[in-house]
């Protein structure tokens, strides 16, 4: 590999942010490295574009999972393994835990971080869907201070976020879900493990007094950037749970997807597959609601 590039390592957030500004070229932050190392291998030129690599794994401000007043903070450096093992997340955000479980393989989940998954911003990034569905925000730190952005607004297009060169993704803030919130994550891959998501679906909802009070439906790998199927959500919100026709409503999901993406080569598959996933999520929601 190239010899001009510099390697930086610090456990101090301020020092890291300073480096991002002061350096004469692009400094690439690296944590688990599972995406970056693959990209560098595919395109050696890429490394030449960086003046340096900054290892951020020792910065404590970016680590850990904790509940604060009305939200849960998940540090950018939290690995998928830590998400899976977190009892707090299992209890509050099961769809996020299931998504983390569905990512890559054990050695990947041991290294790859939620911050990395989001910053890489692939259309198939499995944690983006749940984060959007749970209406998470990111806290971006820079020398100029912090700014808070909804995850839903973070990704401009696949592999492109609004995070500036001088910023580090510090942590995620997930609002505490109201009591009785149900969430589910489903994924279709071409095999049972270590499979890129062909299509996925997150549904987060709350049924109160027999009515759907809150609903978020976010597909993955179906549309270029993670966003909820708002038209469908509008149709469902406020409906009596017993009157939800999951078959009819799920068909609308496929149509809404096509409205966003247009007809693509993969549409003949993704449309019915998404329909299936939405139908199942709604059926499960109904079952759970009716059992309560």
């Amino acid at each position: 590999m190239t010899e001009d590039i510099k390697f930086f390592q610090t456990d101090n957030l301020e020092a890291a942010l300073e480096l991002l500004v002061e350096s004469s070229g692009v400094i690439k932050p690296v944590a688990g490295g599972t995406d970056l190392m693959v990209k560098i291998r595919e395109d050696r030129e890429l490394l030449q574009q960086f003046a340096g690599i900054l290892d951020i794994t020792n910065i404590s401000e970016l680590q850990g999972i904790a509940q604060e007043q009305d939200f849960v903070r998940i540090g950018a450096l939290v690995t998928h393994r830590e998400i899976i093992e977190s009892e707090l997340l299992q209890e509050k955000y099961p769809a996020l835990v299931d998504a983390a479980r569905a990512i890559g393989s054990t050695p990947i989940r041991n290294r790859a971080t939620i911050g990395g998954n989001v910053c890489n911003a692939a259309a198939c990034a499995d944690t983006l869907g749940p984060l959007v569905a749970f209406e998470a925000e990111v806290v971006l730190a820079s020398q100029a201070g912090e700014r808070v952005v909804p995850v839903a607004d973070l990704v401009e297009e696949p592999y492109q976020t609004i995070i500036r060169q001088d910023e580090l993704l510090r942590h995620f803030r997930l609002p505490l879900p109201a009591e009785g919130t149900f969430s589910s994550f489903q994924k279709i891959g071409r095999r049972q493990a270590a499979a890129i998501t062909r299509i996925s679906l997150v549904l987060a909802a709350r049924v109160s007094q027999g009515k759907v009070e809150h609903i978020k439906i976010v597909p993955g790998s179906a549309i270029p950037v993670p966003e909820p199927l708002t038209a469908l959500e509008k149709r469902i919100k406020g409906q009596k749970i017993g009157e939800i026709d999951s078959r009819e409503l799920s068909a609308l999901a496929g149509e809404e997807m096509v409205k966003i993406t247009g007809e693509r080569w993969s549409t003949p598959y993704k449309k019915p597959a998404l329909t299936t996933l939405v139908r199942r999520a709604l059926v499960e929601l109904k079952e759970v609601a009716e059992n309560e």
Partner: peptide
């Protein structure tokens, strides 16, 4: 016998 063939009875490809 991939996802597309099993669901749709035919293969799909980028090239159409």
């Amino acid at each position: 016998l991939n996802l597309e063939r099993v669901l749709l009875g035919r293969n799909l490809s980028r090239e159409g």
